[in-house]
Amino acid sequence: MNALAVSAPVDMAELRATLAAEAGPVHFVAGGTDMLIAGRPLPESGLLVDLARVAGMAFISTDGRDVRIGGATTVAALAADCRLRVRIPALCEAAAQCGSVQIRNRATIGGNIANAAPAADLMPVLVAVGTRLVLLKHDGTQYEAALCEYLPNSGHLITEVILPESGLLPRSAFVKLGSRQDMTISRLNLALLAEFQSNHFGVVRVAAGALGPVSSRLLRAEVALAGRKLGAATLRDFIAALVDEVDMAIPGRNSQLYKRRAVAGMGFDLIAQAMGLSPRDRLFEEAAQ
């Protein structure tokens, strides 16, 4: 068995050349948080490519119609970017709640996607917005694919994450529930993106994590809000739809009862955050009656 070789390219040209020259398996590492914290072992053979020094892999571009983010951009950078918060507050909120300060300073958006953890905090927002990925193959060619089409074990490198203008709705929010207040893995997380004008919802997108192997859209919850006036009756229907989504996703699971209760409170918090309301607003009291 061949020993593991390590490469640390400094730009995209060197990265492409490195991949093209390697005949065996290629592995990528950026923040390396799973190796540091979870104790995931290094591969035994092939080529390990360190992405930390690749110029052009870490950036946030919000000036165009789409938001474009480099695959090696840290979660801390997402949380701190004021221009990104204007375009999609939910992503900044999800990033700010992702792990500890130390983890956020190392973890990357590309790694969060490639790791494919069911409870990954960035994923519900990325799913709800209809994210597309720019992927680099071993032969140096690039192609685009929808996030839902991405195969984590394909060996293709996420060089860029694209949040399309069509998915960047004016209101957005993210909430999570874990076993403690801080530095916790989500037992359930939710993201909401919505149009909202004259006290009525327009297009609505809702996604959840930790309800299955991957984050997914909650279509019944979306229908409960779309086109309707914000009021107690609408919120009751929204919460009922969220509970139905839990029941359909994890029927018979030990966590079903816990999550169907938890999702109700999280749904109110999600709406409050997106609408700029207090969770103690009378509207939520009426909806809970």
Rank of each mutant, 00 (worst) to 15 (best):
N153H: 09
F196Q: 03
A21W: 06
H200K: 15
G140Q: 14
A240E: 12
T33S: 04
A79F: 12
A241Y: 04
V214A: 15
M275P: 07
A21Y: 05
R87K: 14
L136K: 10
C82R: 10
A13R: 13
I239H: 04
E93G: 01
A145T: 09
L283P: 08
L190P: 09
G24W: 04
A288E: 10
I37Q: 07
N254A: 15
S255E: 15
A55N: 01
G130I: 00
R85N: 07
V204N: 00
L15W: 08
P213S: 13
A207C: 05
F268H: 14
R253N: 13
L151N: 07
D182Y: 11
G32W: 00
M183A: 12
G39D: 08
S166L: 12
Q181F: 07
L190R: 09
V127E: 06
R53N: 11
S215W: 06
V75L: 13
V67D: 04
A207M: 08
A233R: 11
P43I: 07
L147K: 02
Y143E: 11
E149H: 13
S166T: 14
T184V: 14
P9K: 09
V10C: 08
V54W: 05
R132F: 02
A194G: 07
A262Y: 04
T159L: 13
E44G: 14
A117L: 15
P152N: 04
A145M: 03
L242K: 07
A76Q: 11
G212M: 08
L19A: 00
R220W: 06
R280Y: 15
L84I: 10
G39N: 01
V204R: 09
E149G: 03
F174W: 12
R260F: 01
M1I: 12
S186E: 10
A20R: 14
E14C: 06
P25F: 07
N189W: 11
Q142R: 13
R104W: 09
S61V: 13
T108F: 10
L177D: 08
L235N: 01
A23D: 14
S154F: 05
D11T: 09
A30E: 02
A146F: 09
D247A: 10
A94W: 01
P170Y: 06
V134T: 13
S154Y: 03
D63G: 12
F174I: 03
T73E: 12
L19C: 02
E144T: 03
R16M: 06
